[in-house]
Nucleic acid binder design. Structure first.
Length: 186
DNA sequence: CCCTGATTCGC
DNA sequence: GCGAATCAGG
């Protein structure tokens, strides 16, 4: 695959939308996320609205001779001047999914889920991975356990069921078939 | 371990 | 110009 105008256009659009390199690569097909990132840099549309401010210098022991001639730092120093689209950094978007307020995530009451499912859940929660918010990905169970306002809070983190946000056990209590909540009307 | 972008450098 | 390999990090 090569970078046709159309593909580059898609790249630009998705990148500006805050899509990750891997997502873009998946969309385009025929390229890896590395290819996407490489292209992004070559196009010079790297920093998405000055994302990471704190990234001054990362000096190492310089294990490599660095035979590269000095680079021309022609970067766009101007940024907050006439920037029409204040793109929110992905890092910020990822953060604060949980408002940290009072409203706790819906914890189904025991009396409306099947005993088997319940047993399964408690079983899973005992050996859950207890991952943090940062650890959440598209394929980790996002079932919250505990109170977000305290330290006693974590996410299940087990492998999710294809297409679902939760692991098998939690999908069981999260998605109730209409049949089971039927005649429970008060 | 999953993922993110950044950089290098042979092609 | 391209992108795999590698790096640095959440």
């Amino acid at each position: 695959m090569s970078w046709t105008d159309e593909r580059v256009e898609t790249l630009k659009r998705m990148w500006s939308e805050g899509q990750s390199a891997s997502q873009i690569a998946k969309e385009l097909g025929g390229v890896t996320r590395n290819a996407v990132i490489g292209k992004v840099h070559r196009l010079g549309l790297s920093n998405r609205a000055g994302a990471t401010p704190a990234a001054p210098v990362k000096e190492k022991a310089a294990p490599k001779p660095a035979a590269q001639p000095a680079r021309a730092q022609t970067a766009e120093q101007t940024k907050a001047k006439t920037d029409p689209d204040p793109v929110i950094p992905m890092s910020a978007a990822r953060r604060a999914i949980i408002p940290a307020g009072q409203p706790l995530p819906p914890q189904p009451s025991a009396n409306e889920i099947s005993p088997e499912a319940l047993a399964k859940v408690s079983e899973v929660e005992k050996g859950s991975k207890k991952i943090s918010l940062m650890e959440l990905t598209e394929r980790t169970c996002k079932w919250p356990v505990g109170d977000p306002a305290t330290d006693d809070f974590w996410f299940c983190g087990l492998p999710v069921q294809q297409g679902k946000p939760y692991c098998e056990a939690h999908v069981g209590v999260a998605f109730q078939p209409m049949s089971s909540r039927r005649d429970r009307r008060r």
